[in-house]
């Protein structure tokens, strides 16, 4: 019996397993794997939903990088968002989870709710409109005028100096999601015998404890949460559109995703938009893979 036969036998023997997985994976390939392949393929065409797509080579990509200034701005904004909110939200998730880990279960449950609630409350980030509303009725403007720091209200979402910082704050507020929960759970599963052994071995304070015991034993959660936080940090779009509009003033808050939506669903240049989607895909996956490699070195 050669190798091929054994493989085929094993596949036949596992048919019950494949049958169980079939519903999920048929849908998964239809709605996730195939679309990625199609996006890459379409990015080399001039598809516009009306005419038959034609192969145009790298034209969409050269157009994006050489002729489309808005894309370059959107790319810069996206990287800015990702570089600030990705690591910062990852850090916040961990630090908060770590602090509340020592608390009694009820207090811990309360703080978990407080920090996690924004990420599950749907479109409630709209409420930030009332903090940074451009007229005197905005809470921040009202407060600053009251203090006498400014005379006229600041139009926060129309002033390019404020658009990015405010969106970053809102994004951070939204970002304590699944990764945060993974940390809370992970911290509780760290073997407490390790801490006791550490105390015997001369660990003096909680910072050393964190570095030498907690972090290395949480590596799997660190990897998982990193994926969650990085992926979201590249996908910022809804808060931009709802709070600052589309496009934002001088494109100061536009991101790759909002630009993609603009090209695709407003202008119907699907081939061109697919090139943007492909770049977004490479950015997200590339960053994730790179960070995974880095995090695997923690504690080694």
């Amino acid at each position: 019996m050669d190798y091929k036969d054994t493989k085929w036998m094993m596949i036949k023997k596992s048919r019950q397993n494949y049958a169980l997985m079939a519903p999920y994976f048929v849908l998964f390939f239809t709605f996730t794997v195939m679309p990625v392949v199609m996006a890459v393929a379409l990015s080399f065409s001039n598809f516009n939903m009306l005419q038959r797509p034609e192969f145009v080579g790298w034209a969409n990509y050269t157009r994006l990088f050489l002729e489309n200034e808005i894309f370059i701005i959107a790319l810069q904004n996206t990287l800015m968002f990702a570089v600030v909110t990705g690591p910062l939200s990852f850090l916040l998730c961990f630090v908060f989870a770590w602090i509340i880990n020592d608390m009694p279960p009820r207090v811990r449950a309360f703080f978990t709710l407080v920090f996690y609630a924004p990420s599950i409350s749907g479109n409630v980030f709209f409420i930030w409109q009332f903090f940074f509303s451009g007229d005197r009725l905005g809470l921040v403007n009202g407060f600053l005028i009251d203090l006498g720091l400014i005379d006229n209200p600041i139009n926060f979402f129309r002033d390019i100096r404020f658009i990015m910082p405010i969106l970053i704050i809102v994004q951070l507020w939204l970002s304590l999601g699944v990764g945060f929960l993974a940390f809370i759970a992970g911290l509780q599963t760290v073997d407490k015998a390790l801490y006791e052994a550490g105390a015997v071995d001369g660990i003096r304070n909680r910072w050393q404890e964190l570095w030498f015991i907690t972090l290395p034993s949480m590596k799997p959660q660190l990897l998982f949460a990193a994926v969650m936080q990085i992926t979201t940090s590249f996908a910022i779009a809804d808060i931009v559109v709802i709070l600052a509009g589309l496009p934002t003033v001088n494109y100061a808050g536009d991101t790759i995703v909002t630009h993609l939506q603009d090209i695709g669903w407003v202008r119907f240049e699907m081939g061109y938009a697919s090139a943007v989607a492909t770049i977004l895909f490479l950015l997200m996956v590339g960053t994730n893979k790179g960070v995974q490699r880095m995090l695997k070195k923690v504690g080694t």
Partner: peptide, 17 residues
């Protein structure tokens, strides 16, 4: 791997499918 990107990447082909 698919945890590492969002549905924005696949939106247009998904619409076609």
């Amino acid at each position: 791997l698919s945890l590492m990107f969002t549905a924005h990447v696949t939106a247009i082909p998904n619409f076609l499918i």
